[in-house]
Design a protein around this nucleic acid. Structure first.
Lengths: 336, 336
DNA sequence: ATGAAAGCGCTAACAT
DNA sequence: ATGTTAGCGCTTTCAT
């Protein structure tokens, strides 16, 4: 255990002041090349690694990027989360850590946000996040909100256009001849659920198609909730010819329920999901779905955050609603 | 923006020294209750929040728990990862951050481990992690390795017993009358793949059942790789009556392939998976699988790490291989 | 091109 | 019960 090699250790060995060591290690032009080289070699040999706490204290930055999710164990699909973290980590400059946390966790523990971060990336699902987003914004540090449209114009914000994605889905169903259309909604407090539900209602209204209350049920975005929701529909009398599920996980659960109750998908009941999850293409039947533009959203967000942190920010605050796309596979049957 | 409220700000306002403020805020018994109360109220009112960098510098700890995965975008199943992070976050004392990182990321960027952490939790899949685990161990700080059995006895280590789990699976298949058994292995460099493959071979040998090379293929734990692997088996001539897939994701991909090639599962080909993933119970057919004891592993690991960090450690270093359990569902058919 | 000294915000001896 | 002082490891004036 090489006990605490600091710049002073190196300074002594190199017969220079610790100031010079600091400058050399930070590649300051003020230090002679020869000296720099010596010091660097020494640092390498001693396995020196700077004390980030000290550096952070004096530089007023922490080398930490906070990544907040609405909740870590529900609502946010695991594959979304892991892809997100991977992408963030890859795009971040070396030396930065990502601190993962959730607003739901803070709420449960009655805590406030941690103030030690240089920039925050919020993957928001619910307007209940707003109080925390506000706390983050008040720090004056760079904050970028992803995934959900927020009602403030002082923060960069990139989201997927859930409304238009749902319109695309429902219009596709109509084109395929469906008129009896049901919906399995997601968590009621999630903006995405609300937007998708609103779009669903609007499109059917626009086409003068009656809404059947029995065919409109609510889940919580989990596979199991999709299963339960579908059971309700299956037990309610007349059946719809197709279901729009607010996400792929619930669609899969619901299709499972159809199978258990002896209904063939898509012959008797068709399904459209939402997300474009990794499993959707391998499910039986392969799921027709609306693919969320995750990569684009994350990419945009991280570029912006990096710029903000490095003060390379010239662009004004921007909001972008990125359009998802329809992926046609096997779970929707064309009917006359 | 309340610019930098420090203990000195509070000290001045309360007409005490900053030391007293520090003590009061840390609930030292040396401070009079009345003074404490005043100071606390003042802190609250001023929205004071301690500078963790300063605190970390002087206390020689950082309030950061490092969580390392082998890779963030492959090998580690997303649902495993998100459940893990959730559990970790819930069990951690308030004020701690979790810094998520991956060894694969470090390798790609040619970086070393970050030294700013009070304890590290390693979710290891591969022996290629060992070089980094060694770096972590050398810091002398608490390190707990999860998920994979490591070949050193100076670190706490909790893993799932992949070998025995696979034995259970294969013996179940034999009991169900199967003799023509194939395997789809996971990433070759992953210990879990090797252990599962070894157990597979050993059990069949023990029962004097021939190994058929055509029925032994390798994937990479992804759904897609399961699909591709199964295609190979399907195209290779005589078919096995069942397949042991090294994880659920590959099983699902493989079943998808069977479906596409017109084979019924489980009537023509049976399947056993491994993991007990969230989707396995909703797949069609519901997947019979070996459930990894994730929760137990994570729980054990975190308790130990917490104890280690708080020096409550009396137990000697321990290694535990926790046994997984068979979950019988619908993907295995009994044959005469 | 290099060094001396100050200070970031906090805790901890060591007074009193 | 409270204050004074020093110091954690680093960067940054200000000298030289």
């Amino acid at each position: 255990m090489n006990d605490k090699v600091t710049i002073k250790t190196i300074a002594k060995m190199a017969n220079v002041s610790h100031t010079t060591v600091s400058r050399a290690l930070n590649n300051s032009p003020l230090v002679k090349e020869k000296t720099k080289k010596e010091i660097r070699e020494l640092a390498e040999r001693l396995n020196y690694s700077p004390n980030l706490n000290a550096k952070a204290l004096v530089e007023h930055r922490s080398f930490i990027i906070a990544v907040y999710f609405t909740d870590l164990n529900s609502g946010t699909s695991p594959s979304f989360m892991s892809e997100m973290l991977h992408q963030i980590k890859e795009m971040l400059p070396a030396g930065y850590e990502i601190a993962v946390d959730s607003f739901a966790g803070l709420r449960r523990a009655n805590q406030s946000i941690n103030l030690r971060f240089d920039g925050a990336l919020v993957v928001s699902q619910s307007s209940s996040d707003d109080v925390y987003i506000d706390q983050l914004a008040k720090t004056g540090k760079p904050v970028v909100v992803l995934n959900r449209e927020i009602e403030r114009d002082d923060l960069f914000n990139y989201a997927s256009d859930d409304y238009s994605g749902t319109v695309t889905a429902i219009e596709y169903l109509l084109r395929m001849g469906h008129k009896k259309i049901g919906i399995i909604s997601g968590k009621e407090e999630f903006a995405s659920s609300q937007n998708r539900l609103n779009a669903f209602v609007d499109v059917l209204n626009k086409h003068n198609i009656n809404l059947n209350d029995n065919w409109m049920v609510t889940g919580d975005y989990s596979v199991k909730s999709g299963y339960n929701a579908m059971e309700k529909i299956l037990n309610a009398g007349e059946l719809p010819t197709c279901i729009f599920a607010s996400n792929d996980d619930m669609a899969m659960g619901a299709i499972r329920a159809c199978q258990d109750y002896g209904f063939n998908v898509p012959d008797q009941i068709s399904f459209v999901g939402f997300d474009g999850s990794a499993y959707s293409n391998y499910f039986i039947p392969r799921l027709t779905t609306i693919k969320k533009p995750m990569r684009e959203i994350t990419n945009k967000g991280l570029k912006t955050l990096n710029n903000l942190i490095n003060n390379k920010n010239i662009t004004p605050i921007e909001f972008m609603n990125i359009k998802p796309s329809l992926v046609v596979r096997e779970s929707v049957k064309k009917i006359n």
